[in-house]
Design a protein around this nucleic acid. Structure first.
Lengths: 299, 299
DNA sequence: CTATCGTAATAAGTATTGCTAATGGATGGG
DNA sequence: CCCATCCATTAGCAATACTTATTACGATAG
Protein backbone atom coordinates (compact mmCIF):
# COMPACT_ATOMS: atom_id res chain seq x y z
CA UNK A 1 0.00 0.00 0.00
CA UNK A 2 0.96 3.60 -0.39
CA UNK A 3 1.85 5.20 2.89
CA UNK A 4 -0.07 8.41 2.49
CA UNK A 5 -3.60 8.80 3.69
CA UNK A 6 -6.36 7.86 1.27
CA UNK A 7 -8.51 10.71 -0.03
CA UNK A 8 -11.49 11.63 2.06
CA UNK A 9 -14.04 10.95 -0.66
CA UNK A 10 -12.70 7.46 -1.26
CA UNK A 11 -12.97 6.72 2.41
CA UNK A 12 -16.43 8.20 2.73
CA UNK A 13 -17.62 6.24 -0.29
CA UNK A 14 -16.18 3.06 1.17
CA UNK A 15 -17.93 3.72 4.46
CA UNK A 16 -21.34 4.05 2.84
CA UNK A 17 -20.86 1.10 0.52
CA UNK A 18 -19.55 -1.14 3.29
CA UNK A 19 -22.34 -0.16 5.61
CA UNK A 20 -25.08 -0.66 3.02
CA UNK A 21 -23.38 -3.53 1.20
CA UNK A 22 -24.80 -2.11 -1.98
CA UNK A 23 -22.99 0.26 -4.32
CA UNK A 24 -26.17 1.64 -5.86
CA UNK A 25 -27.69 2.43 -2.48
CA UNK A 26 -24.43 4.05 -1.40
CA UNK A 27 -24.52 6.13 -4.57
CA UNK A 28 -28.06 7.30 -3.80
CA UNK A 29 -27.06 8.20 -0.24
CA UNK A 30 -24.07 10.18 -1.43
CA UNK A 31 -26.00 11.76 -4.33
CA UNK A 32 -23.82 10.33 -7.01
CA UNK A 33 -24.03 7.61 -9.60
CA UNK A 34 -23.34 3.95 -9.03
CA UNK A 35 -20.55 4.26 -11.51
CA UNK A 36 -18.72 6.81 -9.41
CA UNK A 37 -18.96 4.59 -6.34
CA UNK A 38 -17.61 1.63 -8.25
CA UNK A 39 -14.69 3.66 -9.53
CA UNK A 40 -13.80 5.23 -6.20
CA UNK A 41 -13.77 1.91 -4.44
CA UNK A 42 -11.57 0.49 -7.12
CA UNK A 43 -9.20 3.41 -6.66
CA UNK A 44 -9.17 2.93 -2.89
CA UNK A 45 -8.51 -0.78 -3.26
CA UNK A 46 -5.67 -0.02 -5.61
CA UNK A 47 -4.28 2.57 -3.22
CA UNK A 48 -4.39 0.12 -0.31
CA UNK A 49 -3.13 -2.76 -2.43
CA UNK A 50 -5.87 -5.05 -1.19
CA UNK A 51 -9.43 -6.01 -2.04
CA UNK A 52 -12.12 -4.55 0.20
CA UNK A 53 -15.18 -6.22 -1.29
CA UNK A 54 -16.01 -9.64 -2.66
CA UNK A 55 -18.16 -9.07 -5.73
CA UNK A 56 -20.75 -11.80 -5.94
CA UNK A 57 -22.96 -11.28 -8.93
CA UNK A 58 -25.98 -9.84 -7.18
CA UNK A 59 -24.52 -8.64 -3.90
CA UNK A 60 -21.22 -7.48 -2.54
CA UNK A 61 -19.75 -8.56 0.79
CA UNK A 62 -16.74 -7.30 2.69
CA UNK A 63 -13.43 -9.08 2.69
CA UNK A 64 -11.60 -9.59 5.97
CA UNK A 65 -9.63 -6.43 5.34
CA UNK A 66 -12.77 -4.52 4.52
CA UNK A 67 -14.43 -5.79 7.65
CA UNK A 68 -11.48 -4.65 9.72
CA UNK A 69 -11.26 -1.31 7.97
CA UNK A 70 -14.91 -0.32 8.31
CA UNK A 71 -14.90 0.43 12.07
CA UNK A 72 -11.61 2.30 11.70
CA UNK A 73 -13.05 4.49 9.00
CA UNK A 74 -16.31 5.02 10.83
CA UNK A 75 -14.75 6.16 14.07
CA UNK A 76 -12.27 8.36 12.26
CA UNK A 77 -14.88 10.11 10.16
CA UNK A 78 -17.21 10.43 13.10
CA UNK A 79 -14.50 11.87 15.32
CA UNK A 80 -13.33 14.35 12.77
CA UNK A 81 -16.83 15.51 12.00
CA UNK A 82 -17.78 15.88 15.64
CA UNK A 83 -14.61 17.68 16.64
CA UNK A 84 -14.74 19.93 13.63
CA UNK A 85 -18.31 20.82 14.45
CA UNK A 86 -17.40 21.46 18.10
CA UNK A 87 -14.88 24.06 17.06
CA UNK A 88 -16.61 25.75 14.16
CA UNK A 89 -20.30 25.54 14.84
CA UNK A 90 -21.86 28.55 16.56
CA UNK A 91 -21.64 28.98 20.33
CA UNK A 92 -24.28 26.96 22.14
CA UNK A 93 -24.18 24.03 19.76
CA UNK A 94 -22.18 20.86 19.95
CA UNK A 95 -21.19 18.17 22.34
CA UNK A 96 -19.29 18.57 25.60
CA UNK A 97 -17.55 15.66 27.24
CA UNK A 98 -16.83 16.06 30.95
CA UNK A 99 -14.87 13.90 33.31
CA UNK A 100 -16.23 14.51 36.80
CA UNK A 101 -15.24 13.44 40.27
CA UNK A 102 -17.99 11.26 41.77
CA UNK A 103 -18.45 13.31 44.94
CA UNK A 104 -18.54 16.64 43.14
CA UNK A 105 -21.03 15.31 40.65
CA UNK A 106 -23.31 13.92 43.32
CA UNK A 107 -23.01 16.71 45.85
CA UNK A 108 -22.90 19.81 43.69
CA UNK A 109 -23.27 19.23 39.98
CA UNK A 110 -26.45 17.18 40.27
CA UNK A 111 -28.15 20.12 41.97
CA UNK A 112 -27.00 22.77 39.52
CA UNK A 113 -26.41 21.26 36.11
CA UNK A 114 -30.01 21.76 35.06
CA UNK A 115 -29.33 25.49 34.92
CA UNK A 116 -26.57 25.01 32.40
CA UNK A 117 -28.76 22.75 30.29
CA UNK A 118 -31.62 25.23 30.43
CA UNK A 119 -29.35 28.05 29.31
CA UNK A 120 -27.61 26.13 26.55
CA UNK A 121 -30.14 23.61 25.28
CA UNK A 122 -28.11 23.06 22.12
CA UNK A 123 -25.14 21.60 23.98
CA UNK A 124 -25.34 17.87 24.43
CA UNK A 125 -23.53 16.78 27.56
CA UNK A 126 -21.67 13.55 28.07
CA UNK A 127 -20.52 12.85 31.63
CA UNK A 128 -17.89 10.35 32.63
CA UNK A 129 -17.18 9.73 36.27
CA UNK A 130 -13.70 9.11 37.51
CA UNK A 131 -11.67 10.27 40.46
CA UNK A 132 -8.33 10.09 38.71
CA UNK A 133 -6.28 12.81 37.16
CA UNK A 134 -6.90 12.98 33.50
CA UNK A 135 -4.80 12.70 30.41
CA UNK A 136 -6.23 14.97 27.77
CA UNK A 137 -3.98 13.67 25.06
CA UNK A 138 -5.24 10.11 25.48
CA UNK A 139 -8.85 10.63 26.40
CA UNK A 140 -11.35 12.61 24.45
CA UNK A 141 -12.98 14.77 27.07
CA UNK A 142 -12.92 18.52 26.96
CA UNK A 143 -12.88 19.36 30.67
CA UNK A 144 -12.39 17.51 33.92
CA UNK A 145 -13.27 18.13 37.55
CA UNK A 146 -10.83 16.41 39.85
CA UNK A 147 -10.09 16.43 43.56
CA UNK A 148 -6.48 16.58 44.63
CA UNK A 149 -3.58 18.81 45.51
CA UNK A 150 -3.36 20.36 42.06
CA UNK A 151 0.17 19.24 41.42
CA UNK A 152 -0.36 17.96 37.92
CA UNK A 153 1.83 19.19 35.14
CA UNK A 154 0.70 20.24 31.71
CA UNK A 155 -2.77 21.15 32.88
CA UNK A 156 -4.60 24.36 33.61
CA UNK A 157 -6.28 24.37 37.00
CA UNK A 158 -8.95 26.45 38.63
CA UNK A 159 -9.91 25.73 42.22
CA UNK A 160 -13.65 25.45 42.55
CA UNK A 161 -14.41 25.75 46.26
CA UNK A 162 -12.61 27.10 49.33
CA UNK A 163 -9.73 24.87 50.30
CA UNK A 164 -10.74 24.44 53.92
CA UNK A 165 -12.21 21.61 55.92
CA UNK A 166 -14.13 21.30 59.14
CA UNK A 167 -15.69 18.49 61.16
CA UNK A 168 -19.12 17.53 59.85
CA UNK A 169 -21.62 15.11 61.33
CA UNK A 170 -25.33 14.52 61.82
CA UNK A 171 -27.25 17.07 63.85
CA UNK A 172 -27.83 14.52 66.57
CA UNK A 173 -24.15 13.83 66.98
CA UNK A 174 -23.34 17.55 66.84
CA UNK A 175 -25.40 18.10 69.98
CA UNK A 176 -23.04 15.84 71.90
CA UNK A 177 -20.08 18.03 71.01
CA UNK A 178 -19.04 21.23 72.67
CA UNK A 179 -15.27 21.19 72.59
CA UNK A 180 -12.65 19.52 70.39
CA UNK A 181 -11.75 16.77 72.80
CA UNK A 182 -15.37 15.60 72.81
CA UNK A 183 -14.64 14.21 69.37
CA UNK A 184 -12.20 11.72 70.80
CA UNK A 185 -15.02 9.65 72.22
CA UNK A 186 -16.79 9.50 68.85
CA UNK A 187 -16.00 7.60 65.67
CA UNK A 188 -13.80 9.61 63.34
CA UNK A 189 -14.14 9.03 59.63
CA UNK A 190 -10.96 9.43 57.65
CA UNK A 191 -10.74 9.71 53.90
CA UNK A 192 -7.56 7.97 52.86
CA UNK A 193 -5.54 9.81 50.30
CA UNK A 194 -6.65 13.24 51.44
CA UNK A 195 -3.85 15.62 52.34
CA UNK A 196 -5.62 16.79 55.49
CA UNK A 197 -6.02 14.51 58.48
CA UNK A 198 -7.66 14.40 61.87
CA UNK A 199 -4.20 14.44 63.36
CA UNK A 200 -3.61 17.90 61.88
CA UNK A 201 -6.98 19.09 63.03
CA UNK A 202 -6.40 18.09 66.66
CA UNK A 203 -2.92 19.60 66.52
CA UNK A 204 -4.54 23.01 66.15
CA UNK A 205 -5.92 22.59 69.66
CA UNK A 206 -2.77 21.13 71.14
CA UNK A 207 -4.24 17.67 71.25
CA UNK A 208 -1.92 14.86 70.26
CA UNK A 209 -4.02 12.21 68.58
CA UNK A 210 -3.13 8.68 69.54
CA UNK A 211 -4.37 6.57 66.60
CA UNK A 212 -4.77 3.50 68.78
CA UNK A 213 -7.18 5.27 71.12
CA UNK A 214 -9.77 6.53 68.63
CA UNK A 215 -12.19 4.55 66.55
CA UNK A 216 -11.37 5.54 63.02
CA UNK A 217 -13.36 4.43 60.00
CA UNK A 218 -11.31 4.64 56.85
CA UNK A 219 -12.99 5.13 53.53
CA UNK A 220 -11.56 5.92 50.13
CA UNK A 221 -14.08 8.47 48.91
CA UNK A 222 -15.65 11.60 50.26
CA UNK A 223 -19.00 10.31 49.11
CA UNK A 224 -18.74 7.24 51.33
CA UNK A 225 -17.58 9.42 54.21
CA UNK A 226 -20.56 11.74 53.82
CA UNK A 227 -23.01 8.87 53.76
CA UNK A 228 -21.56 7.50 56.96
CA UNK A 229 -21.59 10.90 58.59
CA UNK A 230 -25.19 11.55 57.56
CA UNK A 231 -26.35 8.28 59.02
CA UNK A 232 -24.77 9.14 62.35
CA UNK A 233 -21.87 6.71 62.14
CA UNK A 234 -19.30 9.33 63.01
CA UNK A 235 -17.66 12.65 62.23
CA UNK A 236 -15.89 13.41 59.00
CA UNK A 237 -13.46 16.15 58.12
CA UNK A 238 -14.45 17.71 54.85
CA UNK A 239 -15.24 20.79 52.79
CA UNK A 240 -18.27 22.63 54.19
CA UNK A 241 -18.91 24.23 50.78
CA UNK A 242 -19.65 20.86 49.29
CA UNK A 243 -22.40 20.00 51.74
CA UNK A 244 -24.56 23.11 51.51
CA UNK A 245 -27.62 21.10 50.60
CA UNK A 246 -27.17 18.54 53.37
CA UNK A 247 -26.60 21.43 55.76
CA UNK A 248 -29.77 23.18 54.73
CA UNK A 249 -31.83 20.01 54.94
CA UNK A 250 -30.61 19.31 58.44
CA UNK A 251 -28.76 16.18 57.42
CA UNK A 252 -25.33 17.46 58.33
CA UNK A 253 -24.09 19.96 60.88
CA UNK A 254 -20.78 21.57 61.74
CA UNK A 255 -20.14 21.44 65.50
CA UNK A 256 -17.31 23.99 65.27
CA UNK A 257 -17.04 27.18 63.27
CA UNK A 258 -13.28 27.03 62.87
CA UNK A 259 -12.03 25.84 59.53
CA UNK A 260 -8.68 24.32 58.73
CA UNK A 261 -6.87 25.04 55.46
CA UNK A 262 -6.01 22.09 53.26
CA UNK A 263 -3.99 21.74 50.13
CA UNK A 264 -6.66 19.60 48.47
CA UNK A 265 -9.43 21.12 46.45
CA UNK A 266 -11.75 20.38 43.59
CA UNK A 267 -10.27 21.73 40.42
CA UNK A 268 -11.65 22.46 37.03
CA UNK A 269 -8.98 21.05 34.77
CA UNK A 270 -8.36 21.72 31.12
CA UNK A 271 -5.46 21.19 28.76
CA UNK A 272 -2.67 23.71 28.60
CA UNK A 273 -1.42 25.32 25.44
CA UNK A 274 -4.44 24.91 23.23
CA UNK A 275 -7.74 26.71 23.33
CA UNK A 276 -10.93 25.09 24.48
CA UNK A 277 -13.82 24.34 22.18
CA UNK A 278 -16.63 26.88 22.28
CA UNK A 279 -18.86 24.58 24.30
CA UNK A 280 -16.10 23.98 26.81
CA UNK A 281 -15.43 27.70 27.15
CA UNK A 282 -19.09 28.33 27.71
CA UNK A 283 -19.22 25.64 30.38
CA UNK A 284 -16.11 26.93 32.10
CA UNK A 285 -17.51 30.44 32.21
CA UNK A 286 -20.85 29.18 33.48
CA UNK A 287 -19.19 27.10 36.20
CA UNK A 288 -16.99 30.00 37.30
CA UNK A 289 -19.96 32.31 37.65
CA UNK A 290 -22.14 29.67 39.28
CA UNK A 291 -19.44 28.84 41.82
CA UNK A 292 -18.90 32.54 42.53
CA UNK A 293 -22.57 32.99 43.37
CA UNK A 294 -22.68 29.73 45.28
CA UNK A 295 -19.67 30.56 47.43
CA UNK A 296 -21.02 34.04 48.17
CA UNK A 297 -24.24 32.51 49.44
CA UNK A 298 -22.17 30.25 51.66
CA UNK A 299 -20.65 33.05 53.74
CA UNK B 1 -19.82 25.93 8.39
CA UNK B 2 -20.84 23.13 6.09
CA UNK B 3 -21.60 19.97 7.95
CA UNK B 4 -19.72 17.55 5.76
CA UNK B 5 -16.16 16.62 6.39
CA UNK B 6 -13.48 18.77 4.79
CA UNK B 7 -11.42 17.15 2.06
CA UNK B 8 -8.39 15.23 3.19
CA UNK B 9 -5.89 17.30 1.21
CA UNK B 10 -7.21 20.56 2.67
CA UNK B 11 -6.81 19.13 6.12
CA UNK B 12 -3.36 17.77 5.43
CA UNK B 13 -2.25 21.07 3.98
CA UNK B 14 -3.60 22.89 7.00
CA UNK B 15 -1.73 20.54 9.31
CA UNK B 16 1.61 21.20 7.66
CA UNK B 17 1.07 24.94 7.40
CA UNK B 18 -0.12 25.23 10.99
CA UNK B 19 2.76 23.16 12.29
CA UNK B 20 5.39 25.06 10.33
CA UNK B 21 3.65 28.43 10.49
CA UNK B 22 4.95 29.02 7.01
CA UNK B 23 3.02 28.36 3.82
CA UNK B 24 6.12 28.14 1.67
CA UNK B 25 7.76 25.62 3.95
CA UNK B 26 4.56 23.61 4.04
CA UNK B 27 4.50 23.66 0.25
CA UNK B 28 8.05 22.34 0.13
CA UNK B 29 7.21 19.59 2.61
CA UNK B 30 4.17 18.53 0.61
CA UNK B 31 5.97 18.89 -2.73
CA UNK B 32 3.66 21.53 -4.09
CA UNK B 33 3.81 25.21 -4.77
CA UNK B 34 3.19 27.90 -2.21
CA UNK B 35 0.27 28.97 -4.33
CA UNK B 36 -1.48 25.65 -3.92
CA UNK B 37 -1.11 25.83 -0.14
CA UNK B 38 -2.51 29.30 -0.06
CA UNK B 39 -5.49 28.27 -2.16
CA UNK B 40 -6.28 25.13 -0.22
CA UNK B 41 -6.20 26.92 3.08
CA UNK B 42 -8.47 29.56 1.71
CA UNK B 43 -10.87 26.84 0.58
CA UNK B 44 -10.76 25.17 3.97
CA UNK B 45 -11.38 28.45 5.74
CA UNK B 46 -14.31 29.10 3.49
CA UNK B 47 -15.65 25.61 4.10
CA UNK B 48 -15.42 26.02 7.87
CA UNK B 49 -16.71 29.56 7.77
CA UNK B 50 -13.90 30.80 9.96
CA UNK B 51 -10.37 32.11 9.66
CA UNK B 52 -7.62 29.69 10.61
CA UNK B 53 -4.60 31.95 10.18
CA UNK B 54 -3.80 35.54 10.94
CA UNK B 55 -1.79 36.78 7.98
CA UNK B 56 0.78 39.23 9.24
CA UNK B 57 2.76 40.47 6.32
CA UNK B 58 5.91 38.48 6.93
CA UNK B 59 4.65 35.61 9.04
CA UNK B 60 1.40 33.77 9.68
CA UNK B 61 0.05 32.78 13.07
CA UNK B 62 -2.89 30.64 14.03
CA UNK B 63 -6.18 32.09 15.14
CA UNK B 64 -7.87 30.65 18.20
CA UNK B 65 -9.91 28.37 16.00
CA UNK B 66 -6.84 27.26 14.12
CA UNK B 67 -5.01 26.62 17.37
CA UNK B 68 -7.89 24.47 18.57
CA UNK B 69 -8.21 22.68 15.26
CA UNK B 70 -4.57 21.72 14.84
CA UNK B 71 -4.45 18.98 17.52
CA UNK B 72 -7.77 17.61 16.31
CA UNK B 73 -6.47 17.32 12.79
CA UNK B 74 -3.15 15.91 13.88
CA UNK B 75 -4.59 13.14 15.99
CA UNK B 76 -7.16 12.28 13.36
CA UNK B 77 -4.66 12.05 10.54
CA UNK B 78 -2.23 10.18 12.71
CA UNK B 79 -4.85 7.69 13.82
CA UNK B 80 -6.16 7.06 10.37
CA UNK B 81 -2.71 6.59 8.94
CA UNK B 82 -1.61 4.25 11.70
CA UNK B 83 -4.74 2.14 11.64
CA UNK B 84 -4.78 1.97 7.87
CA UNK B 85 -1.18 0.82 7.90
CA UNK B 86 -1.93 -1.74 10.61
CA UNK B 87 -4.53 -3.37 8.40
CA UNK B 88 -2.97 -3.12 4.99
CA UNK B 89 0.75 -3.25 5.49
CA UNK B 90 2.35 -6.68 5.10
CA UNK B 91 2.32 -9.14 8.00
CA UNK B 92 5.09 -8.41 10.47
CA UNK B 93 4.87 -4.65 10.11
CA UNK B 94 2.92 -2.15 12.11
CA UNK B 95 2.13 -1.26 15.66
CA UNK B 96 0.42 -3.43 18.24
CA UNK B 97 -1.16 -1.95 21.32
CA UNK B 98 -1.65 -4.33 24.23
CA UNK B 99 -3.41 -3.87 27.52
CA UNK B 100 -1.83 -6.27 29.99
CA UNK B 101 -2.59 -7.31 33.52
CA UNK B 102 0.28 -6.26 35.81
CA UNK B 103 0.93 -9.69 37.27
CA UNK B 104 0.85 -11.48 33.94
CA UNK B 105 3.18 -8.93 32.45
CA UNK B 106 5.68 -9.19 35.27
CA UNK B 107 5.50 -12.93 35.88
CA UNK B 108 5.20 -14.33 32.39
CA UNK B 109 5.34 -11.80 29.58
CA UNK B 110 8.55 -10.16 30.74
CA UNK B 111 10.32 -13.52 30.44
CA UNK B 112 8.96 -14.40 27.02
CA UNK B 113 8.18 -11.28 25.07
CA UNK B 114 11.71 -11.03 23.70
CA UNK B 115 10.97 -14.09 21.57
CA UNK B 116 8.05 -12.35 19.90
CA UNK B 117 10.13 -9.26 19.27
CA UNK B 118 12.95 -11.34 17.84
CA UNK B 119 10.59 -13.14 15.49
CA UNK B 120 8.69 -10.03 14.38
CA UNK B 121 11.18 -7.19 14.55
CA UNK B 122 8.94 -5.05 12.35
CA UNK B 123 6.12 -4.93 14.88
CA UNK B 124 6.40 -2.07 17.30
CA UNK B 125 4.80 -2.91 20.61
CA UNK B 126 3.02 -0.55 22.93
CA UNK B 127 2.13 -1.94 26.35
CA UNK B 128 -0.41 -0.46 28.72
CA UNK B 129 -0.85 -1.97 32.13
CA UNK B 130 -4.24 -2.24 33.72
CA UNK B 131 -6.10 -4.87 35.66
CA UNK B 132 -9.53 -3.86 34.49
CA UNK B 133 -11.71 -5.31 31.82
CA UNK B 134 -11.33 -3.41 28.65
CA UNK B 135 -13.62 -1.54 26.35
CA UNK B 136 -12.40 -1.92 22.82
CA UNK B 137 -14.82 0.60 21.41
CA UNK B 138 -13.48 3.36 23.66
CA UNK B 139 -9.82 2.52 23.93
CA UNK B 140 -7.49 2.01 21.08
CA UNK B 141 -5.71 -1.21 21.96
CA UNK B 142 -5.84 -4.29 19.80
CA UNK B 143 -5.66 -7.02 22.42
CA UNK B 144 -5.91 -7.30 26.17
CA UNK B 145 -4.79 -9.78 28.79
CA UNK B 146 -7.05 -9.69 31.81
CA UNK B 147 -7.54 -11.75 34.94
CA UNK B 148 -11.08 -12.58 35.96
CA UNK B 149 -13.94 -15.01 35.64
CA UNK B 150 -14.39 -14.40 31.91
CA UNK B 151 -17.94 -13.22 32.22
CA UNK B 152 -17.66 -10.19 29.98
CA UNK B 153 -20.03 -9.76 27.12
CA UNK B 154 -19.15 -8.68 23.63
CA UNK B 155 -15.61 -9.99 23.88
CA UNK B 156 -13.80 -13.02 22.60
CA UNK B 157 -11.89 -14.85 25.32
CA UNK B 158 -9.15 -17.42 25.36
CA UNK B 159 -7.95 -18.79 28.71
CA UNK B 160 -4.17 -18.64 28.90
CA UNK B 161 -3.18 -20.91 31.77
CA UNK B 162 -4.76 -23.77 33.67
CA UNK B 163 -7.55 -22.53 35.92
CA UNK B 164 -6.27 -24.14 39.09
CA UNK B 165 -4.62 -22.84 42.20
CA UNK B 166 -2.48 -24.30 44.93
CA UNK B 167 -0.73 -23.03 48.05
CA UNK B 168 2.61 -21.42 47.27
CA UNK B 169 5.25 -20.14 49.67
CA UNK B 170 9.00 -19.81 50.15
CA UNK B 171 11.02 -23.01 50.30
CA UNK B 172 11.85 -22.36 53.95
CA UNK B 173 8.19 -22.11 54.89
CA UNK B 174 7.33 -25.16 52.79
CA UNK B 175 9.62 -27.28 54.94
CA UNK B 176 7.43 -26.55 57.96
CA UNK B 177 4.38 -27.96 56.22
CA UNK B 178 3.45 -31.57 55.86
CA UNK B 179 -0.34 -31.60 56.08
CA UNK B 180 -3.07 -29.06 55.36
CA UNK B 181 -3.75 -28.11 58.94
CA UNK B 182 -0.12 -27.04 59.35
CA UNK B 183 -1.09 -24.02 57.29
CA UNK B 184 -3.39 -22.80 60.04
CA UNK B 185 -0.44 -21.79 62.18
CA UNK B 186 1.08 -19.73 59.33
CA UNK B 187 0.08 -16.42 57.79
CA UNK B 188 -2.31 -16.87 54.89
CA UNK B 189 -2.22 -14.34 52.10
CA UNK B 190 -5.55 -13.66 50.47
CA UNK B 191 -6.04 -11.83 47.19
CA UNK B 192 -9.26 -9.91 47.51
CA UNK B 193 -11.52 -10.08 44.49
CA UNK B 194 -10.36 -13.54 43.47
CA UNK B 195 -13.11 -16.10 43.08
CA UNK B 196 -11.14 -18.77 44.96
CA UNK B 197 -10.49 -18.50 48.66
CA UNK B 198 -8.61 -20.22 51.46
CA UNK B 199 -11.95 -21.20 52.91
CA UNK B 200 -12.69 -23.28 49.80
CA UNK B 201 -9.25 -24.80 49.87
CA UNK B 202 -9.57 -26.00 53.47
CA UNK B 203 -13.06 -27.28 52.76
CA UNK B 204 -11.53 -29.90 50.46
CA UNK B 205 -9.88 -31.42 53.50
CA UNK B 206 -12.91 -31.12 55.74
CA UNK B 207 -11.38 -28.24 57.66
CA UNK B 208 -13.70 -25.41 58.55
CA UNK B 209 -11.72 -22.21 58.47
CA UNK B 210 -12.46 -19.81 61.28
CA UNK B 211 -11.40 -16.39 59.93
CA UNK B 212 -10.81 -15.04 63.40
CA UNK B 213 -8.26 -17.73 64.20
CA UNK B 214 -5.88 -17.33 61.27
CA UNK B 215 -3.62 -14.46 60.48
CA UNK B 216 -4.69 -13.36 57.07
CA UNK B 217 -2.92 -10.71 55.01
CA UNK B 218 -5.19 -9.23 52.43
CA UNK B 219 -3.78 -7.74 49.26
CA UNK B 220 -5.46 -6.58 46.11
CA UNK B 221 -3.08 -7.95 43.52
CA UNK B 222 -1.44 -11.27 42.82
CA UNK B 223 1.82 -9.46 42.35
CA UNK B 224 1.75 -8.14 45.91
CA UNK B 225 0.78 -11.58 47.18
CA UNK B 226 3.70 -13.21 45.39
CA UNK B 227 6.19 -10.71 46.77
CA UNK B 228 4.98 -11.38 50.27
CA UNK B 229 5.08 -15.13 49.73
CA UNK B 230 8.59 -14.98 48.26
CA UNK B 231 9.92 -13.05 51.21
CA UNK B 232 8.55 -15.65 53.60
CA UNK B 233 5.68 -13.58 54.97
CA UNK B 234 3.14 -16.34 54.42
CA UNK B 235 1.41 -18.69 52.04
CA UNK B 236 -0.61 -17.60 49.07
CA UNK B 237 -3.15 -19.47 46.98
CA UNK B 238 -2.39 -18.94 43.33
CA UNK B 239 -1.82 -20.35 39.85
CA UNK B 240 1.29 -22.59 39.81
CA UNK B 241 1.65 -22.01 36.06
CA UNK B 242 2.32 -18.38 36.65
CA UNK B 243 5.27 -18.91 38.96
CA UNK B 244 7.37 -21.32 36.93
CA UNK B 245 10.39 -19.06 37.08
CA UNK B 246 10.17 -18.46 40.82
CA UNK B 247 9.75 -22.20 41.23
CA UNK B 248 12.82 -23.00 39.20
CA UNK B 249 14.91 -20.40 40.99
CA UNK B 250 13.95 -21.80 44.36
CA UNK B 251 12.08 -18.67 45.36
CA UNK B 252 8.71 -20.35 45.66
CA UNK B 253 7.62 -23.85 46.46
CA UNK B 254 4.36 -25.77 46.50
CA UNK B 255 3.98 -27.75 49.73
CA UNK B 256 1.12 -29.85 48.33
CA UNK B 257 0.68 -31.40 44.92
CA UNK B 258 -3.10 -31.18 44.92
CA UNK B 259 -4.58 -28.39 42.87
CA UNK B 260 -7.96 -26.75 43.29
CA UNK B 261 -10.01 -25.61 40.29
CA UNK B 262 -10.98 -21.95 40.15
CA UNK B 263 -13.23 -20.00 37.87
CA UNK B 264 -10.66 -17.21 37.49
CA UNK B 265 -8.07 -17.28 34.79
CA UNK B 266 -5.94 -15.03 32.67
CA UNK B 267 -7.66 -14.44 29.38
CA UNK B 268 -6.51 -13.14 26.08
CA UNK B 269 -9.31 -10.78 25.13
CA UNK B 270 -10.17 -9.35 21.75
CA UNK B 271 -13.21 -7.68 20.27
CA UNK B 272 -16.03 -9.76 18.89
CA UNK B 273 -17.51 -9.37 15.45
CA UNK B 274 -14.65 -7.73 13.67
CA UNK B 275 -11.37 -9.19 12.51
CA UNK B 276 -8.09 -8.42 14.20
CA UNK B 277 -5.32 -6.47 12.54
CA UNK B 278 -2.57 -8.58 11.06
CA UNK B 279 -0.17 -7.73 13.87
CA UNK B 280 -2.78 -8.68 16.46
CA UNK B 281 -3.46 -11.99 14.74
CA UNK B 282 0.23 -12.74 14.63
CA UNK B 283 0.55 -11.95 18.31
CA UNK B 284 -2.45 -14.07 19.23
CA UNK B 285 -1.08 -17.03 17.32
CA UNK B 286 2.34 -16.59 18.84
CA UNK B 287 0.90 -16.39 22.37
CA UNK B 288 -1.25 -19.48 21.83
CA UNK B 289 1.70 -21.52 20.63
CA UNK B 290 4.02 -20.16 23.31
CA UNK B 291 1.51 -20.93 26.06
CA UNK B 292 0.96 -24.42 24.67
CA UNK B 293 4.68 -25.16 24.86
CA UNK B 294 4.96 -23.49 28.23
CA UNK B 295 2.09 -25.44 29.76
CA UNK B 296 3.44 -28.72 28.38
CA UNK B 297 6.77 -28.04 30.07
CA UNK B 298 4.89 -27.43 33.28
CA UNK B 299 3.50 -30.95 33.57
C1' DC C 1 -37.34 -20.53 -21.80
C1' DT C 2 -37.52 -15.72 -21.98
C1' DA C 3 -38.40 -11.08 -20.36
C1' DT C 4 -37.45 -8.11 -16.73
C1' DC C 5 -35.31 -6.25 -12.77
C1' DG C 6 -31.49 -5.22 -9.96
C1' DT C 7 -26.78 -5.17 -9.57
C1' DA C 8 -21.77 -4.04 -10.84
C1' DA C 9 -18.01 -3.06 -14.33
C1' DT C 10 -16.36 -0.45 -18.07
C1' DA C 11 -15.65 3.15 -21.62
C1' DA C 12 -15.87 7.70 -23.10
C1' DG C 13 -16.85 12.27 -22.44
C1' DT C 14 -17.60 16.32 -19.46
C1' DA C 15 -17.20 19.00 -15.29
C1' DT C 16 -14.75 20.09 -11.42
C1' DT C 17 -10.90 20.58 -8.76
C1' DG C 18 -6.05 20.91 -7.99
C1' DC C 19 -1.78 22.57 -9.17
C1' DT C 20 1.78 25.46 -11.48
C1' DA C 21 3.89 29.49 -13.26
C1' DA C 22 4.01 34.10 -13.23
C1' DT C 23 3.21 38.31 -10.99
C1' DG C 24 2.31 41.78 -7.46
C1' DG C 25 2.25 43.74 -2.86
C1' DA C 26 4.02 44.01 1.65
C1' DT C 27 7.66 43.84 5.07
C1' DG C 28 11.97 43.53 7.40
C1' DG C 29 17.07 42.84 7.35
C1' DG C 30 21.42 44.33 5.56
C1' DC D 1 17.29 51.67 -0.35
C1' DC D 2 17.36 47.23 -2.21
C1' DC D 3 16.93 42.55 -1.94
C1' DA D 4 15.09 38.43 0.07
C1' DT D 5 11.16 36.46 1.87
C1' DC D 6 6.64 35.84 2.44
C1' DC D 7 1.63 35.45 1.02
C1' DA D 8 -2.27 36.51 -2.47
C1' DT D 9 -4.02 36.47 -6.99
C1' DT D 10 -4.72 35.21 -11.69
C1' DA D 11 -4.74 32.44 -15.76
C1' DG D 12 -4.12 28.29 -17.79
C1' DC D 13 -3.06 23.56 -17.82
C1' DA D 14 -3.35 18.84 -15.66
C1' DA D 15 -5.46 15.51 -12.96
C1' DT D 16 -9.38 13.79 -10.93
C1' DA D 17 -14.11 13.08 -10.13
C1' DC D 18 -18.35 12.39 -11.90
C1' DT D 19 -21.97 11.29 -15.48
C1' DT D 20 -24.00 8.95 -19.21
C1' DA D 21 -24.40 5.05 -21.76
C1' DT D 22 -23.55 0.43 -22.25
C1' DT D 23 -22.39 -4.39 -21.16
C1' DA D 24 -22.67 -8.32 -18.36
C1' DC D 25 -24.46 -11.25 -14.96
C1' DG D 26 -27.89 -13.63 -12.19
C1' DA D 27 -32.35 -14.02 -9.86
C1' DT D 28 -37.15 -14.21 -10.47
C1' DA D 29 -41.63 -14.15 -12.51
C1' DG D 30 -44.52 -15.29 -16.33
Amino acid sequence: MKTDIPAMNWVRTFEAAARLLNFSAAARELHMTQSAVSQQIKLLEHHLGDELFIRKHKKVTLTNSGLAYLPVVQTTLNDLQRKTADIFSPVGKGRLVLQVNYAFSYLWLSNNLYKFCARYPGIRLQLFHSNWASDFSESSHDLAIINGNGKWSGLNLEPLIKAEVQPLCSVKIAQLISQPKDLLSLSLIEVVGASHSWEQWFEQFGINLDPSLVICHKVDTILAASMMAESGLGVMLSYPDLFAKQYKEGKLSAPFDEKMPTSDNYFLVFPEGRPLSKSATVFRDWLREEMRVFLRLMT
